[in-house]
Measured scan of single mutants.
Amino acid sequence: MKVMIRKTATGHSAYVAKKDLEELIVEMENPALWGGKVTLANGWQLELPAMAADTPLPITVEARKL
């Protein structure tokens, strides 16, 4: 699914347009965010693609819901 990742004042957030859902990312498998699992505030887990740590945000990526 397409997910937009952006930086907020409190960390990172994910927006899933198909579900009209925006949630804070509360847990990251990798400190650089990319190439691992993230957990959203509502409990969803997404697998993000591997990208460079300095990838500019906001960005829309293809993520997989676990």
Rank of each mutant, 00 (worst) to 15 (best):
1 M>Q: 05
1 M>D: 05
1 M>V: 13
3 V>P: 00
5 I>N: 03
6 R>T: 10
6 R>F: 13
7 K>I: 08
7 K>G: 06
8 T>M: 08
10 T>R: 13
11 G>Y: 05
11 G>S: 05
12 H>Q: 05
13 S>I: 13
13 S>K: 09
13 S>T: 13
13 S>A: 12
14 A>G: 04
15 Y>D: 01
16 V>R: 00
16 V>M: 14
17 A>W: 15
17 A>F: 15
19 K>M: 15
19 K>D: 15
21 L>V: 13
21 L>I: 14
22 E>D: 12
22 E>G: 06
23 E>Q: 12
23 E>R: 06
23 E>A: 14
24 L>S: 11
25 I>R: 01
26 V>Q: 03
26 V>N: 03
27 E>I: 09
28 M>Y: 12
28 M>L: 07
29 E>M: 05
29 E>W: 06
30 N>T: 09
30 N>M: 09
31 P>Y: 07
32 A>P: 04
33 L>G: 05
34 W>M: 02
36 G>A: 06
36 G>F: 05
37 K>T: 12
38 V>L: 03
39 T>F: 07
39 T>I: 11
39 T>L: 10
41 A>E: 08
42 N>W: 06
42 N>Y: 03
42 N>T: 03
43 G>F: 05
43 G>K: 02
44 W>D: 05
45 Q>A: 08
45 Q>H: 09
47 E>R: 09
47 E>S: 10
48 L>Y: 02
49 P>W: 05
49 P>A: 03
50 A>V: 12
50 A>S: 11
50 A>K: 11
50 A>W: 15
51 M>K: 06
52 A>M: 08
52 A>T: 08
53 A>Q: 10
53 A>E: 13
53 A>D: 12
54 D>G: 10
54 D>M: 07
54 D>P: 04
54 D>N: 11
54 D>H: 08
55 T>G: 04
55 T>A: 06
55 T>E: 02
55 T>V: 08
56 P>T: 11
57 L>S: 02
58 P>E: 02
58 P>K: 03
59 I>R: 06
59 I>C: 10
60 T>F: 11
60 T>R: 04
61 V>Q: 02
61 V>P: 00
62 E>C: 15
62 E>K: 10
64 R>M: 11
65 K>N: 12
66 L>E: 04
66 L>S: 08
